[in-house]
Simulated assay, not measured.
Amino acid sequence: MTTEQERTAMGGAHRFVGLAENLERHAGTPTGAEPPNVRGTNRGYGLVFFYLERYHLTTVISSGLRFQPLGADPAQELACTVYKEQAEAARHLVDLTAEVLVQQRTHLVPDQIVPNEQPLLPGTEFHGVLASGHPMFPPEFTRFTDQDGVEQLQVFTLLPVTLGELNYILDHGVTALRQQWARFEVDVFDLGRPSVA
């Protein structure tokens, strides 16, 4: 038996007409997909891989969170952009974060930090992600509107943050961390980057 919220979340797929083309326009050529049942049971979302050859960047985007009863208005999907060689790490970050949202039936808000006690990626200091607009793609990537200009979907980009940066955010705020990233010319797409805090 489905709740009213679940029926609302599942219905209205017509609101997303043109979404695939919009994502492709900004994130590049689709290169693969992982179905919702890749681990046996349906996890409630799939993953789609895009490649932007000009910048050697892979973007992994969730597909299906928008139909889950997460309480988000507008609906949400997640993305993570990294250099092509690091695509598996981006897949892991999007999958892990999406899984948390589905299990907890919750959603993200702009500039939200999703922390983790252990490193999210082996051999790194990344202990969390920052839910953000995309640092390089235009606002049309982050905020998808229907033909009438009504916002139907937000695509939150997950920016990995180190333990030091998480603590810096707690002390100084997200804006201050972004200023540090700009000051030190941090390449947020490089998972081999040093921490600025």
Rank of each mutant, 00 (worst) to 15 (best):
G123P: 09
L163M: 02
L177Q: 00
V114Y: 03
H127D: 07
W181M: 01
G192E: 07
V186I: 10
V109P: 06
Y168M: 12
Q154G: 11
N167G: 05
V186Y: 04
S132H: 00
Q112D: 03
V114L: 11
N167W: 07
V129P: 14
R178F: 03
L120V: 07
A176F: 01
H172Q: 08
G128Q: 12
D187V: 14
L170T: 03
G192M: 00
R193H: 07
G128F: 08
L153F: 00
L191R: 05
V150R: 01
P138S: 11
T175F: 04
V188F: 14
F141G: 10
S132F: 10
I113D: 02
L108I: 10
V150S: 03
R143H: 13
F189K: 14
P115E: 01
P115M: 00
V129D: 06
A131N: 15
H172S: 13
D146P: 15
D148P: 13
R183H: 11
G192C: 05
V114E: 12
P160T: 03
V129K: 10
L159E: 06
T157Q: 12
L130F: 08
I169Q: 00
F144W: 11
Q118F: 02
S132T: 05
E165W: 06
E140W: 08
P160S: 14
H134N: 14
A131D: 15
L108D: 04
D171I: 07
A182P: 13
L121G: 11
V114Q: 06
D111Q: 14
P122G: 00
V155E: 08
T124I: 09
T157L: 14
L163F: 00
N116I: 12
V114A: 09
D187R: 10
G192H: 02
L120P: 08
E125V: 12
L130E: 04
L191E: 06
E117V: 00
Q147D: 14
T124M: 04
V186A: 06
V150K: 01
L191C: 12
E185P: 12
R183L: 08
P122R: 06
T145F: 00
R193Y: 03
T124E: 05
Q179L: 06
P139Y: 11
L130M: 15
L170D: 02
F126V: 15
V186C: 00
